[in-house]
């Protein structure tokens, strides 16, 4: 019997080094798409008179680009401030027959309903509708468009000069 024992301890961890190791995990990507609205309007809209004998009104157009997504409804409206110089056309309390008028035409493939019958603009505090949107309305990715056509009677009582009124458009979606 041997007095001294030889102990050889070999710890060998033989893992499968030659095989690919692979693990997986998941994440859920989530988002909420809500009603949204965007509008772009030109900085100025000139009203021009093509005649010289008071037989032709001042007319002009405002081209509006917009994007909208609704759940229930939406609209584009405007408010018009009073003309900046007295003695010319007026928004509020104009002489009968001198009212600023407008219609709106929604582009052929655009979403929304315009104002086809000319409406008078006789208040600086009223929100006048331009386009209305129903439930689940959605614009094209590139955006939609509408045109507001303005008509201002050419009253000889207007003093000569330059007049301007700031019109503020608002688009909303719910």
């Amino acid at each position: 019997m041997k007095k001294y024992l030889l102990v050889l301890l070999a710890i060998a961890l033989f893992t499968t080094a030659a095989f690919a190791q692979q693990k997986t995990g998941t994440t859920t990507i989530s988002l909420t798409v809500g009603p949204e609205a965007w509008i772009s309007v030109p900085s100025s809209t000139p009203l021009l008179n093509a005649g010289s004998d008071f037989t032709v009104d001042y007319v002009g157009t405002t081209a509006i680009a917009y994007k909208v997504r609704t759940t229930t409804s939406g609209s584009i409206t405007f408010k018009a401030a009073e003309f900046d110089v007295t003695g010319g056309p007026k928004i509020a309390s104009p002489v009968a027959g001198d009212e600023l008028k407008y219609t709106s035409v929604v582009g052929g493939t655009s979403v929304g309903t315009g104002v086809t019958t000319a409406a008078n603009v006789t208040s600086t505090s009223t929100d006048y509708p331009v386009v209305t949107f129903g439930a689940n309305a959605s614009s094209k990715k590139a955006g939609d468009g509408t045109t507001v056509n303005w008509t201002l009677p050419n009253d000889p009582q207007y003093k000569t000069g330059a007049y301007s009124s700031i019109v503020t458009f608002t688009i909303s979606a719910t």
Partner: peptide
Amino acid sequence: PQYSTGNYSATAT
């Protein structure tokens, strides 16, 4: 804008 309003999710593995 063409997306309908609502909540959407997709699982990425």
